[in-house]
Nucleic acid binder design. Structure first.
Length: 102
DNA sequence: GTCGTGACTAGCC
DNA sequence: CGGCTAGCCACGA
């Protein structure tokens, strides 16, 4: 299993997200020091080698929309709800409040 | 070495 | 609001 630098950083950050909080691609990109690399992040999360260990479902779009998920956004929503996050019309309620800034 | 592409973003109408 | 557009970078084929 070969991980790119970005992968390592991203996964490392993902596990830092506290329960009940979410983040978005842009913040994640900023956190790894490359604000314009959100594209890569989406790709990497899609590869998703550790989908069960890492909280990849806690990553949403910058406007609070769910974005995507390898197993379908339905699954993603279910997982988010388990964390106490409310989803309405494919959008996160209280988005700015539960948004976790690194 | 070159080309295509993505779980996106921001800006404009 | 919403839909459309251009821009962006690293990775894999």
């Amino acid at each position: 299993m070969k991980l790119t630098k970005l992968q390592k950083k991203i996964y490392n950050l993902l596990i830092k997200i506290p329960e009940g909080k979410i983040t978005n691609y842009k913040l994640l990109a900023k956190a790894i020091g490359k604000p314009k690399n959100w594209r890569e992040i989406g790709k990497i999360l899609n590869q998703n080698p550790f989908s069960e260990k890492y909280h990849c479902y806690k990553v949403v779009k910058s406007d609070g929309k769910i974005g995507g998920y390898k197993f379908g956004i339905k699954k993603k929503i279910t997982l988010l709800k388990k964390d106490g996050i409310i989803i309405i019309n494919n959008r996160v309620k209280n988005f700015s409040k539960i948004l976790f800034r690194f």
